[in-house]
Amino acid sequence: MGDILDILTTAAFWAAAIRIATPLIFGTLGELICERAGVLNLGIEGIMTAGALTGWLSVYLGADLATGVLLAALVGVVFGLLHGLFTVPLGLSQHVTGIGITLLATSLSYFVYRVVLPDTSSPPRIDAFPPVAAELGGIPVLGPLLFQQTALTWLALLAVIVVAYVLYRTPVGLAVRTVGENPAAAEAQGIDVTVVRIGAVMVGSALMAVGGAFLTMSAFNAFFFEMVNGRGWICIALVVFASWQPGKALLGALLFGAFDAYQVRLQQTVGSLVPYQLFLMLPYLLSILALVVMSRRAAYPKALMIPYRKGER
């Protein structure tokens, strides 16, 4: 029993939790921005895949790491624009469009991959992001927790602060929140609902793509088919868990990362007594439980998934 709890006190465990949480932080923030503006973006899984491919491929073809991340974000912006155009001015079903974007972005990524690398036995590796300050890694607790993480993890943490600040402390953030709550009121204030919504979806999608790029440029150093492996869908649930608030999104992602890091360690202590599938289920089960508890008081954006048509009563 002692072993089981001891895991929680090791710095390596918390470092792993933050690492696992990083792509989820990006994805959840991205989805949160879209939904705050009133647009559900189910294209997230595909946009993360496209970001994972773009970031890795750019570096493989000679770009530096920062450029790779920027290009990944740019691809996210393009898919965001596509999703925005279909769902905002055309007012099409956000569910169907989102799933369509996921299928398109995923297949397109695989297609591009195969065109560039028609016949490989194992995907080529890139030099991924190094720890931000490996020499400080020896510092107890803070070393593994922060200094051995890569620049993208720092970017994710920074993004939480920036998104929270912009949403709550700037006119742009107010506009985003208003078009998601009451677009008619926003319109009356002279805010162009269409532009703000599409813009929010583009920015949100960029963050999702960077989350995908983390997988191929930091967590690992090559691209594989299907490697996003449902992380996008987890982000959708985390947004609800977070009650559409950036701070709670960070908390939710960290909690999920901690559950996941915990279950792999738990498997080693009591692994032969319990089927491994139960451990793999653990983060999802606990997330559902947390979701049930947290979402009771969640206030979702009032105009979420409702297309805005000018002048319509």
């Binding site: 967590a219 690992f220 299907e226 490697m227 492996n229 792999v264 498997q267 491994y276």
Partner: peptide, 10 residues
């Protein structure tokens, strides 16, 4: 340990 996926290198 089994990770329940064929391709999730991370």
């Amino acid at each position: 340990t089994f990770i329940g996926s064929w391709y999730d290198p991370p």
